[in-house]
Nucleic acid binder design. Structure first.
Lengths: 131, 131
DNA sequence: GCTTGTGTACTATCCGACTAGTACAATGCG
DNA sequence: CGCATTGTACTAGTCGGATAGTACACAAGC
């Protein structure tokens, strides 16, 4: 079963964090067509948040056409998303993992690693906008 | 002069985004000891936010000992942060940039790139916590 | 000394995220 | 049918971020 996590210090609204995690799961293949998401009440209990907050996230995902609710059953993935081919995914993640290790060995702390990644991704975003 | 940017859709509070960007600038060497940050009023005008919001960010940075205000002058960096050596930084960022390009050429969209990076960094975070 | 530009402080207000609690609709199962 | 489980809907309230507007304190420069 898919598991959620929360970062309360990030300032990102809870329901958006949940939406993001499902989106990422779909993009990376952790979640596939037909998979069931944890029930609203389960998630609410596990993360100690209000059921309404979880429901808001699920509603958002439903609006986006990524999941569909079945009353009395739960919420299920209706995967119509471009997934990364498994081989490509494995290759890229291995290479990225190596990079993170190299950065850590070069003495960079987690914050510095994140800062550098953010900077490079922002470059990429700027290029994408310019193109 | 240092320049700020805003991502209004991220859900991250404005003042926290400003704090983060200064922190990153310090970590990566974009900002150095003695550098002046844009004035509160300049930032407020450029980003179209309330001066109080910018002041809140600067106050936060001052509390952290990263910057110091000089009345009538502006806010200046008091850089007591571990910076990444320039050579290390150049090497790592080049390698990461290459990885991003490879990912894009493999057909991954910006969102997928970010998702993958987030996933790997979360792995790293979990390992760091476990250690 | 006066003016200008800077950071700071304060109050009031608005809005969105989140919570609390309850109730309802639909499905599956005995 | 009756019950449990699930998602959904609604109202009311709390809390924090952001805004608006004003006022103050300090330093530099004419």
């Amino acid at each position: 079963m898919f598991a959620f996590r929360l970062d309360t210090r990030s300032g990102v609204p809870t329901y958006l964090q949940l939406v993001e995690q499902v989106r990422h799961g779909l993009l990376l293949g952790y979640l596939q067509d037909g998979d069931q998401l944890p029930t609203v009440r389960d998630v609410a209990a596990a993360l100690v948040v209000n059921p309404n907050t979880v429901a808001k996230a699920y509603r958002e995902l439903e609006r986006a056409g990524l999941v569909a609710p079945r009353a009395g059953q739960g919420t299920f993935v209706t995967g119509n998303v471009d997934r990364v081919p498994a081989a490509t995914y494995a290759k890229l993640s291995a290479r990225l993992r190596a990079w993170v290790n190299a950065a850590r060995e070069a003495g960079l702390g987690p914050d510095q690693v994140r800062a550098l990644v953010t900077a490079i991704l922002d470059e990429d975003r700027s290029k994408a906008r310019a193109a």
